[in-house]
């Protein structure tokens, strides 16, 4: 452990789930970080939640606390165009078989890009304060904007 050393406190490690900091004899050769624990030949055919990610894989870390605003997703309007999935810089749009399912709030950093690229009217994704209640906001979703002539 990093006893008495402030240079690298444990905060980042805790977020990554790697609290035990090992010594020089145990770190990997060449700073490689293995994505999965053990054998992982079929990882490509598994959904993320079924894979055995390593502690150092960012999938196991959450950065939810960094977010100040968050996107909320409205299934009723969405046309499954996949724009948000393509553009999200943090792969935080969950989509299966070309169907948009929602937002991965553990990894979404609240940048708002998905909202920008959503083509529906009204948008199927909108940004709200982090503390906003999803159900309440979905109740009050804006209605279609008429194009001004």
């Amino acid at each position: 452990m990093s006893k008495g050393l402030e240079g690298n406190d444990n905060r980042g490690a805790r977020e990554l789930g790697a609290e035990e900091k090992v010594g020089w004899d145990e770190v990997t050769q060449g700073v490689v970080l293995h994505s999965f624990v053990g054998e992982s030949k079929n990882a490509a055919f598994l959904k993320p939640e079924e894979r055995v990610y390593n502690d150092f894989n960012s999938y196991t870390a959450t950065v939810a606390s960094w977010r100040i605003i968050k996107p909320i997703y409205n299934r009723d309007i969405c046309i499954d165009c996949q724009n948000c999935w393509v553009w999200c810089p943090d792969t935080s749009i969950i989509s299966r078989d070309k169907q948009m399912l929602g937002i991965d709030y553990d990894h979404c950093k609240g940048c708002g890009v998905c909202v920008e690229v959503c083509p529906t009217n009204p948008k199927s994704l909108l940004m709200f304060n982090e503390a906003a209640d999803n159900d309440a906001e979905l109740e009050n979703w804006p209605v279609k904007e008429k194009k001004a002539k």
Partner: peptide, 8 residues
């Protein structure tokens, strides 16, 4: 100095 792990 200040290195984690066995003495090197």
């Amino acid at each position: 100095s200040g290195l984690r792990g066995p003495k090197l």
